[in-house]
């Protein structure tokens, strides 16, 4: 016989196929290993932070391991008390008092405005939409000083109003932009049907658009929660008395007032400061990823 038998050919093929598959598997294994090691290096500071918050002060700077040799809650107990007349409970309360009204105001105003832009024609719309993009790129640093003077003249300093009010009038252009992007992707059939049935535009918004837009609205709320929780400069400028401090300012205060060697207190309070954001992120991460991929995000 001059030609090879079909059976032989098949086995030859599977041999090269096997080789190829082995190569692919090796490639994937290498990629996984690199990603894993790299990820570990990236996340190790956070892992270390959690471990170190349970360490004694003498141990913190003596070994790079995250595992505490003599676990202690001292950092949490003493850190929580702070050197002020207030405990961290008060500061978390203040943070909540800033975040909740701000987030609600943001969600309502941004939905109304995005609906206006995405579903209506009106005079000056193009220019106004242009200002949304311009505001998106406008550095806050250039408006901060007159804003401060404005709030001072209104008598709003050392209250939460300067932190709430700009957001309650759709001041965060990024969210308006993100919601418009989402709205453009939603077909209008349902809304038009509702209008034919006699619903006015507000009813259409509340009963038809909002339910469909819910994932995007949740994204907006989550981002606003996260950013407000992390915001430092806003409270630093506007909130001056310790009783009104949110956690970000309280943490800075702990650094400034804690005795030089009480590291575990500061680390423990850092963990608590990060905990709400981490928790929310892990519970709702799909909304973050969606929000980011649609609107693009800072951070």
């Amino acid at each position: 016989m001059t030609s090879t038998s079909p059976a032989k050919m098949r086995s030859a093929l599977t041999a090269t196929e096997l080789k190829l598959r082995r190569q692919q598997r090796r490639g994937a294994a290498i990629r996984y290993a690199v990603l894993l090691v790299f990820g570990l290096i990236m996340l190790y500071p956070l892992i270390w932070l959690i471990g170190a918050s349970f360490k004694t002060n003498s141990e913190i700077f003596s070994s790079p391991s995250f595992w505490p040799k003599e676990p202690t809650l001292d950092g949490y107990i003493n850190g929580w008390q702070t050197s002020t007349p207030y405990t961290f409970a008060r500061f978390f309360m203040n943070s909540a008092l800033i975040i909740i009204p701000k987030t609600i105001g943001t969600a309502i105003s941004c939905v109304l405005v995005a609906y206006g832009f995405a579903r209506f024609e009106f005079p000056g719309k193009r220019i106004l939409f242009g200002t949304v993009i311009a505001t998106l790129l406008l550095p806050n640093v250039v408006t901060r000083i007159p804003q401060y003077l404005l709030f001072r003249d209104l008598g709003w300093l050392d209250s939460f109003l300067p932190l709430w009010v700009p957001s309650a009038v759709a001041g965060d252009a990024f969210f308006v932009f993100m919601l418009i992007q989402f709205l453009r992707a939603i077909p209008r059939d349902m809304e038009e049907a509702a209008r034919v049935d006699g619903a006015n535009t507000l009813q259409t918004l509340v009963f038809i658009v909002v339910p469909m837009l819910m994932p995007a609205i949740i994204s907006v709320c989550l981002f606003q929660f996260m950013w407000t929780m992390n915001d430092f400069l806003g409270p630093l400028i506007y909130v001056s008395s310790v009783e009104n401090y949110p956690v970000s300012l309280a943490l800075k205060l702990s650094i400034d007032t804690t005795e030089a060697f009480d590291w575990n207190q500061i680390l423990a309070m850092s963990v608590l400061t990060l905990a709400p954001s981490l928790l929310v992120f892990f519970v709702a991460q799909k909304y973050f990823i969606e929000g980011i991929s649609t609107g693009g995000v800072k951070g």
Partner: peptide
């Protein structure tokens, strides 16, 4: 890290 990045902590 991006999510937590802006935090003082």
């Amino acid at each position: 890290p991006s999510i937590l990045g802006g935090s003082i902590a």
